[in-house]
Design a protein around this nucleic acid. Sequence first.
DNA 1: TGTACATCAGTGAACGCGCGTTCACTGATGTAC
DNA 2: TGTACATCAGTGAACGCGCGTTCACTGATGTAC
Lengths: 236, 236
Amino acid sequence: MNAGRTARERVRAELTREIAGAARRQLATEGAAGLSLRAVARELGMVSSAIYRYFPSRDDLLTALIIDGYNAAGAAAEEADRACQRADHAGRWLATCRAVRAWALAHPHEYALVYGSPVPGYRAPEQTIGPASRVAAVLGSILSEAHAAGALGPPGTHPPVPAPLRPDAARLRDSVAAGVPDDVIARALTAWAGLFGLVSFELFGQFENVVTDRAAFFDHAVTCLAGLIGLPAPAP
Amino acid sequence: MNAGRTARERVRAELTREIAGAARRQLATEGAAGLSLRAVARELGMVSSAIYRYFPSRDDLLTALIIDGYNAAGAAAEEADRACQRADHAGRWLATCRAVRAWALAHPHEYALVYGSPVPGYRAPEQTIGPASRVAAVLGSILSEAHAAGALGPPGTHPPVPAPLRPDAARLRDSVAAGVPDDVIARALTAWAGLFGLVSFELFGQFENVVTDRAAFFDHAVTCLAGLIGLPAPAP
DNA sequence: TGTACATCAGTGAACGCGCGTTCACTGATGTAC
DNA sequence: TGTACATCAGTGAACGCGCGTTCACTGATGTAC
C-alpha cells in the first residue's frame, strides 16, 4: 500500500536481486543442475542458511531465474522489433528472430533453462506462463499487423488445417494474433517451433560438422520459415 | 580375432549390456543429471566399485547411453521409412517424422539426453558422430530419391542460398543427399531443425496451453515443412 | 526525544544424505605344459 | 587328465566432497507510546 518503502524493504529488495544475480552467474558456468544455494551464498559472502530469508527453497530460486530468462528473451525480442519500421513486416520478423538467437548465444545456460530439457524434479509454477509468451506475442503482433495491412502473400498450396487445431487457433487469435486466419496461425506455430529448433540445434551442438556459417544459415532459414506464413522476403 | 568367444567374454558382454540397460532405466526416471553409478550398481545387486570393471567412469557410461539413444532414434526412423512404398516420398517423410516423435515420446529422457541441453561438464567424443547422423541420413535419402524421380515440386519463390552455405551443402550432398541441389539442401536443413524443434517444444512443455491435439498439429506441421522442400502433400 | 518491545537479518553448528573414485583383497575362471 | 600359474570379477572399506535444509541464537533495525 505504501509507495515509499522503508529502508529495510529497500535493502531487502536489493539483496534479493543480488542473490538472483549471483545465481544467474553461477548458472552461466555450471548449468541448471549445478546451481547450488551454498555456492550462491559463498559468492555473496553469506552463510548458506541466510539465503532462506529471501528464497524459501532452491526451487523458488530456480523459478525466479526462469521468469527472468523468459523476460530477458522477451525484452530482447520486443526491443529488436521496436527498432524496425512498422510497415516492414519481413524485416521485423527477421530482426526478432535474430534477437532471440543473439540472446540465446549470449546466455546459453539461461536459454537451456527455459527452452531446453526440463530440470529434473522441478515443476514450473503458473507464474512462468505470462513471461513465457512474450516472444510469441511479438511474433504474433507482426503477423497480425502484416495481415491487417494485406501484406501476407497469397496462401500458395498448403495442407488444410486439421479440425482439432481450430480452437487453439481461435484462442491464439484472441491473445496474440488478432485477426489472423486459422491456416496462417497453424503455419506460424510451425515457424515458431522451427525458430527455436534452429537456435537449440546451434546451441546444443547438432550443427557441429554440418553447418559452418551459423549466422548466414540462420538468416536464410528463418526467412524460409517466414515464407511459410506468407511474409515476403525482406529487402537486403 | 577368435569369432567363438570364450564364456568369460560372453558373460562380460552380457553384463555390460545389463549395466547399460539399468542405466537407461534410471535415466528414464531421474534424468541425465541424476544418473548415478551407485544407483545403477544397487539395481544390479553389485557393489558400486564393480561397475569400474565395465565402464572406466561415469562419463563413459553416459557416452554409451548417448550412442544407444542416437541408434535407437535412427533405427526407429529407418524402420518407419522401410515400411513405406519407395515411390511415396511424401508418405515416407511423414512416417519418418512420426517415428522420431513416437520414439521421443516413448523415451523422453533419452531424447533429452541426445537432442536436449548438453549435460554440464560432459564433452561428447567423436564416437557419437556416426550414430548421430542416422535420422538425417534417412531424411536425406528420401530427399535424394524424390529428386532423382523428379518428384520434387517446382521451387516456388524462395530466398537465394547464401554463398557460405554452399560448401556445407556440397558436403551433405556427398554424404546423405546424393544429387540434391544446394537450395533444396538448405531448405531441408531448415525442415530438419524444424522437425526437432516441434518434438522438443512438445516434450519440453512449450505447447502447454497452446496446442491441444499434439499429434494432429505435428502431422500438419511436418507436412508444411515438407512443402518447404517441394515434397507434395501425402495422400490422406 | 526517549524508552520498551517486536520484528527481522544473518550466524554457526549440525543432520543426514548421496556421490565418484581408489585400493588392497579374495575367489573363481581360464591357460600352458 | 592333472597340476601351476596368470588373469579377471567382484568385495568392502575408505577418502573427501558438496549438497539442501533446520534450528536455536545474537544483534541490529524498526514501531508504539
